[in-house]
Amino acid sequence: MAKTTAEHHGFPWKHLIGFVLSIVLTLFALWVALYTDLSVTWILIIIFGFAILQAALQLLMFMHVTENSTSSNLTSRVQIGNILFAAFVAIVIVIGSVWVLTAGHAKHDKHDEPKTENHGGSHDSEEHGSH
């Protein structure tokens, strides 16, 4: 799997395609988010899908995550496994935290606040509190 320098003598097509695709994905995500009438759920699914796609693009096209040294293919397996496990941990942290802290009683925590503490944010919580 060693990359040969021969691949690197010509025009950097791989980089250019990656760049163009990332621009397209960025603009498309922006369009979906701000200029379509899709429901919020669908917008979120689409734009996060694009984000993951674009991250994969960077990893493969620019960062050469599958590349390794000449000696063994353990290195590339470690590199890919490392990124996949990081993705697993990241998903657990983000989705887990949001779920745990907005489900059940925790959800009402914010609405209870004005009663137990004196701060003036109560009118805002009705507007922005639940989603």
Partner: peptide
Amino acid sequence: AGYSFLVWVHHFFTMGSGAAV
């Protein structure tokens, strides 16, 4: 190694995240 990242809430069951959590 994988499981150890999936159990943390048992340290604060009494926070009351509800039955599902």
